[in-house]
């Protein structure tokens, strides 16, 4: 249990998707104009990351890894399908996004309308595929760890986008040099937020 909390906290603060790996920057820059929409997108990303990372973990463990097909028949014990992982992961992500969309529409229609177009667009958010690829690279021991990592990364992304949206709402009233307005200042602020987040690096978990 302690281990799970460690992975969760680490993926929120230390290995933050935005500040440490720049994943999902495109939607981060495009959607962070108001706090309301970025909260919606952030929640959707937590949702999808929390679903896809464990599913991809199972896929990796029972289908793709070197010798993973041994449970089917001993003849398949030396089959290595790792090279297929990109295409399989992206297929899982695209279908999971579709599934999450349908579930949310059925059971939480209010949330569904507030997320709107952002849910389907998450399929091509690099943070989601990045989550699965990092899961593969770091070789988590079991599905609980993978889930903790997925949820933590989602929460980290959520914090980052809500933070920058709040700052951008305020910065409209400041006198930024004209060429720096919009994109430029957003980059520099994200850099400063990243430096602030680096102070978590010293924490030993």
């Amino acid at each position: 249990m302690e281990n799970l909390v460690n992975i969760f906290v680490k993926s929120i603060f230390i290995d933050n998707m935005i500040f440490a790996y720049f994943l999902g920057m495109c939607s981060y820059l495009a959607v962070s104009k108001t706090v309301k929409t970025s909260t919606g997108l952030g929640i959707a990303v937590i949702f999808v990351l929390g679903f896809t990372v464990p599913v991809d973990y199972l896929l990796e463990k029972f289908v793709l890894k070197d010798g993973a097909l041994a449970w089917l028949s001993p003849a398949l014990a030396d089959v290595d399908l790792t090279f297929l992982s990109f295409i399989m992961f992206i297929a899982v992500i695209a279908s999971m996004v579709q599934l999450v969309e349908m579930v949310v529409e059925k059971f939480a229609p209010a949330l569904y309308t507030s997320l709107g177009i952002f849910l389907p667009l998450i399929a091509v958010n690099c943070a989601i595929l990045g989550g699965s690829l990092f899961m593969q690279e770091r070789e988590y021991a079991n599905i609980a760890e993978a889930t903790a990592f997925g949820l933590g990364s989602g929460v980290g992304w959520f914090l980052a986008i809500v933070g920058i949206a709040a700052i951008r709402e305020k910065i409209k009233y400041s006198n930024v040099p004209a060429p720096l307005r919009g994109l430029g200042i957003t980059f520099i602020i994200t850099g400063l937020m990243g430096i602030a987040f680096m102070s978590f690096m010293g924490i030993k978990l």
């Binding site: 720049f22 004209a178 060429p179 430029g184 980059f187 520099i188 850099g191 430096i195």
Partner: peptide
């Protein structure tokens, strides 16, 4: 460290837009 990449890109954008006024956002 990662944050400086953002700042360097921010500065590139700044220089590019200072030279080409038509790209400035309002």
């Amino acid at each position: 460290l990662p944050p400086m990449a953002l700042v360097v890109v921010g500065i590139i954008i700044w220089i590019q837009r200072a030279r080409r006024k038509d790209l400035i956002e309002n």
